[in-house]
Amino acid sequence: MSADLTWLLIKNNNSFLVKRSGVQFSSEAGNLLNKNSFKYSGIANKKTVDISAAASGRGVVVATPKTKVTLTKGIRKSARSVAGLTRAGYRADLRKAALARVAAVLASQKPVKAAPKKAGKGIRATKA
């Protein structure tokens, strides 16, 4: 079945569709921006790039229909790998969305630093 026909069948009714406040989102795998549109659809398109957090809690999993790779070397090397994958003729139109998704997933895995405590106001002794 062609991608256009698949999109016409699933665009208004599918199990991944989330409708809120007049806006439609999609929670399907392979949809980088979670928008309900043909360009980002992981169901209608044959070539998809799915980026998700690794099960171990460290790194990202980059999956295409043929391969699945876990990247754990850090944000720069992971971004370079994903950019290379998308530039090499495999959905170059999704490069910015894929890089944004990698950055967001890796940023969410960083430990939260505690804010430094402020010095409390002491009691001043006054002369009587």
Results as ranks from 00 to 15, higher is better:
Met1Gly: 15
Ala3Lys: 06
Ala3Ser: 15
Asp4Trp: 03
Leu5Lys: 13
Leu5Thr: 15
Leu8Gly: 07
Lys11Pro: 04
Asn13Val: 15
Asn14Glu: 00
Asn14Trp: 00
Ser15Glu: 07
Phe16Ala: 13
Phe16Lys: 04
Val18Thr: 13
Lys19Pro: 00
Ser21Ile: 14
Val23Asn: 04
Val23Lys: 06
Gln24Arg: 13
Gln24Phe: 10
Phe25Thr: 04
Phe25Gly: 01
Ser26Tyr: 00
Ser26Asp: 15
Ser26Ala: 10
Ser26Gln: 12
Ser26Cys: 13
Ser27Asn: 14
Ser27Cys: 10
Gly30Thr: 08
Gly30Pro: 07
Lys35Glu: 14
Asn36His: 09
Asn36Asp: 09
Ser37Ile: 09
Lys39Arg: 11
Ile43Glu: 06
Ala44Glu: 05
Asn45Pro: 04
Lys46Trp: 15
Lys46Thr: 10
Lys46Gln: 13
Lys47Arg: 13
Thr48Arg: 14
Ile51Met: 02
Ser52Met: 05
Ala55Tyr: 15
Ala55Leu: 14
Gly59Ala: 07
Ala63Ser: 13
Thr67Leu: 07
Lys68Gly: 12
Leu71Ala: 00
Gly74Pro: 11
Ile75Gln: 11
Ile75Thr: 10
Gly84Ser: 07
Ala88Asp: 11
Ala88Ile: 05
Arg95Tyr: 00
Ala98Lys: 02
Ala100Cys: 06
Ala100Ile: 07
Ala103Lys: 07
Val105Gln: 03
Ala107Glu: 05
Ser108Pro: 01
Ser108Val: 03
Gln109His: 01
Pro111Gly: 01
Lys113Gly: 03
Ala115Leu: 14
Pro116Tyr: 05
Pro116Met: 07
Lys117Ala: 10
Lys118Val: 05
Ala119Asn: 05
Ile123Val: 08
Ile123Gln: 10
Ile123Asp: 07
Arg124Cys: 07
Lys127Ile: 12
